[in-house]
């Protein structure tokens, strides 16, 4: 009976559920980052948020290590092995991006460039929050894509994630337009800070899109 159960184990399905744990961690990191953005003038809140995201990042690293091991030693079709390893790398990179954002926000505060009551800074926070909200939606859809078993639903989710990524691109472009307009009145560190955050928020959405593409690619190559 035990051997028969082993035969029925679909390695790819298990890998996707394990991968889902990293996406859940990314969603938790997203929530922490929203809290940090909400209270970005409070050093204690920034520090606590950064520590929490650091521990989430460590957790994600160890899950990624275990999933990689499971991929190379489990009941997985060899022709999708590379794709699955790439899925893990992309998912882990998403969590890494959150840690980068958290560290960057703390670092900037400690470099004596805290967010102030200036109108422009409120605009920056609003921009970042809208990108984080898009990321939250995209992560939810990636999680769904990893857990469901209907190909047409996965295709639909992939489209929705691509559309969220496009919205993110537009917000990022507007952000850069604003950044370059304001650049002459800015310290180079501020310029670097906003530019880095914009790129990383976009990288999170790109990661979600890449992950959904990879999931679809894995599924179509094992099913067709």
């Amino acid at each position: 009976m035990k051997s028969f159960k082993r035969i029925l184990v679909v390695g790819e399905e298990n890998i996707f559920s394990e991968l889902c744990q990293i996406i859940v961690i990314a969603a938790e990191a997203n929530t922490k980052l929203i809290d940090m953005l909400d209270d970005c003038k409070n050093e204690k809140c920034l520090d606590e948020g950064m520590q929490a995201i650091r521990s989430l990042e460590n957790k994600s690293d160890s899950i990624a290590f275990k999933v990689n091991e499971d991929i190379t030693s489990g009941a997985v079709s060899p022709n999708i092995l590379e794709h699955l390893l790439e899925c893990v790398r992309v998912a882990d990179d998403i969590v890494d991006a959150y840690y980068y954002q958290a560290r960057e926000m703390c670092r900037m505060y400690k470099a004596n460039f805290p967010y102030t009551e200036v109108i422009e800074e409120d605009q920056w926070i609003a921009t970042f929050k809208s990108l984080v909200e898009l990321a939250e939606q995209a992560l939810g859809k990636v999680k769904q894509a990893l857990l469901i078993s209907d190909l047409s639903e996965i295709l639909q989710l992939r489209k929705e994630i691509a559309s969220l990524e496009q919205q993110g691109d537009e917000i990022k472009d507007k952000g850069f337009d604003f950044l370059y307009r304001e650049a002459p009145q800015m310290h180079y560190l501020q310029f670097y800070h906003y530019s880095g955050l914009l790129h990383k928020f976009d990288a999170i959405l790109d990661g979600c899109e890449d992950l959904s593409d990879l999931v679809l690619s894995v599924i179509t190559s094992i099913i067709k």
Partner: peptide
Amino acid sequence: VISRQKVRNIWRRIRFYKVLLL
């Protein structure tokens, strides 16, 4: 024929393949 078929449950299909392969 297999390629034309609509897959409702991916994992059930893979399980079927695995048992069949055995």
